[in-house]
Design a protein around this nucleic acid. Sequence first.
RNA 1: GGGCCUGUAGCUCAAUUGGUUAGAGCAGAGCGCUCAUAACGCUUUGGUUGGGGGUUCGAGUCCCUCCGGGCCUACCA
Length: 572
Amino acid sequence: MARILITSALPYINGIKHLGNLVGSQLPADLYARYMRQRGHEVMFICATDEHGTPAELAAVKTGEEVADYCARMHDVQADLADGFRLSFDHYGRSSSARNHTLTQHLAGKLAENGLIEEVSEKQVYSNADGRFLPDRYIEGTCPNCGYDRARGDQCENCTKLLDPTDLIDPRSAISGSTDLEVRETKHLYLRQSALKDKIDAWIDSQKGWPILTTSIAKKWLHDGDGLQDRGITRDVHWGVPVKKGTEDWPGMEGKVFYVWFDAPIEYIAATAEWADAHGLSESDWERWWRTDKGAEDVRYVQFMGKDNVPFHTLSFPATIMGSGEPWKLVDYIKSFNYLNYDGGQFSTSQGRGVFMDQALDILPSDYWRWWLLSHAPENSDSEFTWENFQASVNKDLADVLGNFVSRVTKFCRSKFTEVVPEGGAFGAQETTLIADLTTRIRAYETHMEAMEIRKAASELRAIWVAGNEYLQSAAPWSTFKTDPEQAAAQVRLALNLIRVYAVLSRPFIPDACDALMAAMHTDDDNWPDDVSAALAALPAGHAFTVPDVTFRKITDDERAEWEGKFAGART
RNA sequence: GGGCCUGUAGCUCAAUUGGUUAGAGCAGAGCGCUCAUAACGCUUUGGUUGGGGGUUCGAGUCCCUCCGGGCCUACCA
């Protein structure tokens, strides 16, 4: 039994996430966590809301709440939706937790002790009307290059030219529109990533088999231009972890907070401590996952994230960990994802474009979404959601191939025998062939799941479902029943057992449906089919079952058309 | 501007890392079956691998170039 630590990139607190966010980190992480638990491994699956930063402050202003209240409310909303999608976190924490404050301040103190923090005085734009410093992209103005009048301080969206806020003509605050801006001197802490460049580079080089998306992004940042740059880890905002050197005040940094990207990954660790607190456990219970001097030496740590998060997880966070000089667990494998597009464009939180988690659950149960999203996960390149494809996949894979298999087997048994696994007959050549075929396929499925090859795993699982229909077609119990009812009984017995095997195998993808199938088969035997032959005898003759309700219904053309129209514009 | 990724059948994707005739699923066509959610099974039609050039005994895979799509570019997160 192995010990596996799994983290999903933290969803930002600012609003409900769309399906692209979901499939880029939380959902595949959940698939992996569920699979590894089922295989008997000890799993710690951690996620949390990422709550700090300017966007959270502005969102709270918009709703008229205190930012802490806003975040607490949105955390609960996101936690409910995560629950709705059956994301099986061991703990869903908050980056604003006391644990994260303490640990973030502690690690910053260690970095300072080790000479890896530098104080830098710099000039930044301050908005008198807003009473705050403005990040570059919160300053708007006319582009000096193309004349576009809504260029941002970091880049012009129109001509894509990179800008400095002082380049803008007629600059104004993107928050209030105020032109009462001034440049002020302010002091910030920088993490001296450049000093750790060679160490990080060697560490990246030593990783084998990471997705090319992961390593190519890391390498680019390490080697582009002058190499890895130092990074500011503090900000002049109010909502965040106050800058402290461990438990001590940090002279000159009063009123400042750590940059959200400094404290967010630390929350992976802090959330595990929150988990221990929530369960009344001790420090050592969470430290054995994270401290290599306290039992984490044999932990395998896997992170899941969208490609936009890769630099922070391959460079900044490892720099924090390594630079602390303390024996924290470093990541062993980073599974990164491209983006899911929506019907010819991007999903967009700010523009309300696409399908959001709450809306998805209003339409259909989570299993339908889980299946489509996971079987189309953007592993190698961006992939695309269309309603037509969604309808076709769900109807064919879930309703016709799997759902109908369950239906035809259970109903046939009920009509020719009773709602009890029938007795008599013996397995012959067809059954031997099926068992051999299933064994090969299940072993392939396991290989893909362990390698986090999600699309391949989904396609193998589907092939396993198809094998059941192929078997029924060739065994044809409806024919053998007329001439040799004993043989038909053996065939039906096998097919009924196949339903249980499918429920066990498919559970990481479609947990609710599998629970329903297990309930219909009146069993809680969820043993993995290591030995297929034995697994197909788990439900013995005489074992009662209930013909289940429709496992997966079809999406009608009318529904598809309705949803296509409903989600064509921006969310209101 | 720079870096990286990507372009394969009508659609969604593979292709053991340079090795035989580029494979699956869906959609389409034909046949079979009648237990089942108008479901299932079998057979089958689709490709100048974005264009052009090169290296090689051999290129979807490597190189050059052009065209298209995307991401990142360090102060959104």
